[in-house]
Nucleic acid binder design. Structure first.
Length: 437
RNA sequence: CGGGGUGUAGCGCAGUCUGGUAGCGCGCUAGUUUUGGGAACUAGAGGCCCCCGGUUCGAAUCCGGGCUCCCCGACCA
């Protein structure tokens, strides 16, 4: 992609409304534009990252056996009256009336609707277990949106819902999502710690929040210092195996959110306890029959008895992750994208656009990288080099490939790693091999 | 929802106290010179000074009301 034909409105100065680093960098790197408090447009660069994150989430949900659906953003109020939440949810729910005076709402979550889908089509124990998810925009009319996309009113969320015959089955479904979440966040270069959490208004008795540690986190969290070095760490776990041992292993290491942490009864010694700020990027719940019972989501058992299914729900804040990853990975100059979510794998900098040799060499590199599935963002602007380096550092692509007349004379280009800052002079072939290998 | 701020060019800001018809930097456009880590010069374009009402010969500026966005707190499946 050539920068002169792309839409990348970068800013040199910090917009005054942005206080935290991820919000500032997202605005300055031309990723988003705010439209109202907590409501954002996603510009091409931001949209690419959002889609990359969404795709990782999708792949890991699919791998764990969940099936993707797509439910609407607008829901009828009647479903919510069945569960009782139409009255309970409060001002955060955006309520709408259509032209026929029907009560509608912009969905803040989808337990009711997915339960409706399940109860319509699933009648037998043979129909479970099943796990359905979607990745859809939600709206919660927060009193005080803040921190850019980290706490917006409109946000993109992956929400999955599991249905099982009994509590034991529901726990197996819960464990699958527990492992899938760890895999998902590790693929994005994040250290996510599962913490025992309050179930809140959704109810139920088993819940974990997945938290990344960051100074700008919204709340205080507590964990065993061993968590700083551990996790799933690439273990390839089969979803067909019994996941309870790994669940026990990981949840056996202390980690708790503010609401669940009791300093007086902390099970680990003070010197092993880490107290930090945390950002919640995922939350999983087991809540049993809370929705299936009032909404009549029943299945027949092998004995012909009718029982309400046991449900769980599992959320990942997809748009919040964009900000969360930046909070976890940036420096003075700008964003430092992990390769797995970067909007482009490499930035190609032509130090002297307009020079025949530089143009030809850059175009050739662009074509070869694109053919190898590593389409670069090619800065072909006819400008001084300094601004190009600054912009490239700001948008944070993992690699910078620098083509200039001086190097070409010796048959070399420069390859810089954004994260480490290491720079190498390589032949064109070696640079290509390193980037595509 | 309580408290505190804010709104002037795309972005960052001055001007408001003390009323006289709007300015600076960045960015943008054109030209020239440049070019290896955020270029220089020259010439330009760009404003419902948040909105409504009031005071005044005259309002970005004073008064009243509303709205927006931001911060702290409470809240947050």
């Amino acid at each position: 992609m050539r920068l002169t034909r792309y839409f990348l409105p970068t800013l040199k100065e910090n917009p005054s409304e942005a206080q935290i680093v991820s919000h500032r960098l997202m605005l300055r790197a031309g990723m988003i534009k705010q439209q109202a408090a907590g409501i954002y447009s996603w510009l091409p660069m931001g949209h690419r990252v959002l889609k990359n994150i969404e795709q990782i989430v999708r792949e890991e949900q699919d791998r764990a056996g969940a099936h993707e659906v797509l439910m609407p953003t607008i829901q009828p109020a009647d479903l919510w009256r069945e569960s009782g939440r139409y009255d309970d949810y409060g001002q955060e729910m955006l309520r709408i009336t259509d032209r026929h005076e029907r009560d509608m709402l912009y969905g803040p979550t989808n337990e009711e609707m997915i339960t409706d889908i399940f109860r319509t089509h699933c009648k037998s124990y043979r129909d479970v277990p099943v796990n359905l998810y979607h990745i859809q925009w939600k709206f919660r009319d927060e009193v005080r949106p803040r921190f850019g996309v980290m706490r917006g009113r409109e946000f993109l969320m992956k929400d999955a819902y599991s249905f099982d015959l009994d509590a034991a089955g529901a726990k197996r479904s819960y464990n699958k999502m527990f492992v899938a979440y760890l895999r998902t966040f590790e693929r994005m270069g994040l250290k996510a710690i599962p913490m025992k959490a309050d179930t809140g208004p959704i109810g139920g008795d088993l819940s974990h929040e997945f938290i990344i540690l960051a100074d700008t986190g919204e709340s205080e969290v507590f964990c065993d210092k061993r968590w700083l070095e551990m996790g799933l760490t690439g273990r390839n776990v089969s979803y067909d195996s019994d996941l309870e041992p790994i669940f026990q292993e990981l949840t056996g290491i202390y980690a708790a959110t503010d609401e669940m942490h009791d300093p007086a009864n902390c099970p680990i010694p003070a010197e092993d306890l880490v107290t930090r700020r945390g950002i919640e990027i995922g939350h999983i719940f087991y809540f049993g029959e809370k929705y299936s019972k009032p909404m009549g989501a029943m299945v027949s058992t092998p004995d012909g008895e009718q029982v309400p299914v046991h449900m769980g729900s599992y959320g990942i804040g997809v748009s919040r992750l964009v900000g969360g990853i930046i909070e976890a990975s940036h420096d003075e100059a700008g964003i430092v994208w992990p390769e797995s979510v970067a909007p482009f794998p490499v930035g190609l900098i032509n130090l002297r656009s307009g020079d025949a040799d530089c143009d030809a060499a850059s175009a050739d590199l662009e074509a070869k990288l694109t053919a190898a599935g590593k389409e670069p963002l090619y800065d072909d602007r006819d400008e001084r080099a300094g601004g190009k380096f600054a912009d490239m550092d700001l948008i944070g692509l993992p690699w910078q490939l620098i083509v200039g007349p001086r190097g070409l004379k010796n048959g070399v280009v420069e390859l810089k790693n954004r994260a480490s800052g290491e720079r190498d002079e390589l032949s064109i072939e070696s640079a290509l091999a390193k980037l595509t290998g």
